[in-house]
Nucleic acid binder design. Structure first.
Lengths: 128, 128
DNA sequence: TAGCATCTATTACGATTGTAGGTGGAATAA
DNA sequence: TTATTCCACCTACAATCGTAATAGATGCTA
C-alpha cells in the first residue's frame, strides 16, 4: 500500500498536520470545532492507525507527549482520493463535471481557473 | 437516510439497474466483467442490503426469481457521492479542480463542455 | 416423475471505521 | 512530597462492506 486509503476523519487529522506542522494528539484534537469534536482517545486511536499505515510518524517527544508529523503529502493523499472518486463514476469524467455544475458546486471562476491551469500545464509540458 | 450512502460495489449494482432496467440477480451479476466477477451470492447480499436501504425493491417475480428495480435515481445517488467527496476536501472546490487537472483527468474538452453547460444553465435560470 | 439446475434465504467472517472507556505512569502544581 | 492532571496504551464494540458457503425450495427437462 504505497498510498493508503484515508477516510474522512483520517484526512482531517492529516490536514491538521499538513497545515499545522508537527503536533501532539491534544493539539490535533483541538483543531476540530468544539461542536462535534471527537474525544481525545478517538483522535488518538485514529492517529495510531495512521501510524500503522505509515501516513505519519512520531517525530519527537515533549514531556511525555509524542509529537506527530505527516509522512505522506497532501497532494499524494488527494490524488488517491480523486482516483477513488473517479472509480465510483467508472472513470468517466463527463458525469462528474455535469454533476458538479448542476449542483452549483462549480462556478464560472472555477472553470476559468481550470482553463488557465490547463493552458499553463500544456505549455510546461511542451517546454519540457 | 433519505439518500443512503452507496459503496462502489453497490453503485455498480445500481448502475446495472439504471441502465439495464429491472433485472434479476443473475442478470446483475452478469453485467460484471468475467474477470473478477463477484460470486452470485455476493451480488445477492448486496442487493438485499440495497433493498434494506430502500435503494431498490422487488418489482415482480419471474418463475421463482425476483426482479429488482431501482428506487433512487442515478442523479440523486451521484449528487450524494459528489457531496461526500467535496466534504473530504472541506468543501473547497479549488483543490479538487487543481487535483483533477494535474492528474490529467480533466481535458481541454471537458473544460470547454463545462463552460458551455454553465452558460446554458445560467441562461435557463435567468429565463425562469 | 426423477433429477438437475437455479433461486431464495440465512448465516458467517474478516477488515475497516468511528467511537470511546479504563488503567497506569509521568509531569506539574501546591 | 503529595495530589492533580495529562498522556500513553490497551481493549472493546457496533456498523458497514466485501466475500461467500450452505441449506432448503422451486422449476424445468428428459
Amino acid at each position: 500500500m504505497r498510498l493508503p486509503k484515508l477516510s474522512k476523519l483520517e484526512l482531517q487529522i492529516m490536514e491538521a498536520l499538513w497545515s499545522g506542522g508537527p503536533l501532539a494528539i491534544r493539539e490535533i484534537q483541538e483543531t476540530f470545532p468544539q461542536k462535534g469534536r471527537p474525544a481525545y482517545t478517538t483522535v488518538q486511536t485514529m492517529v495510531y492507525r495512521l501510524e500503522v499505515k505509515k501516513a505519519l510518524r512520531r517525530a519527537r517527544k515533549i514531556g511525555n507527549a509524542h509529537i506527530f508529523e505527516a509522512l505522506i503529502s497532501r497532494d499524494a493523499a488527494q490524488r488517491r482520493l480523486v482516483d477513488d472518486f473517479l472509480g465510483m463514476f467508472g472513470g468517466r469524467m463527463q458525469p462528474v463535471m455535469a454533476q458538479l455544475i448542476e449542483a452549483g458546486n462549480l462556478t464560472t471562476k472555477d472553470v476559468a481557473d481550470a482553463e488557465k491551469l490547463l493552458r499553463d500545464l500544456s505549455k510546461k509540458r511542451k517546454d519540457a
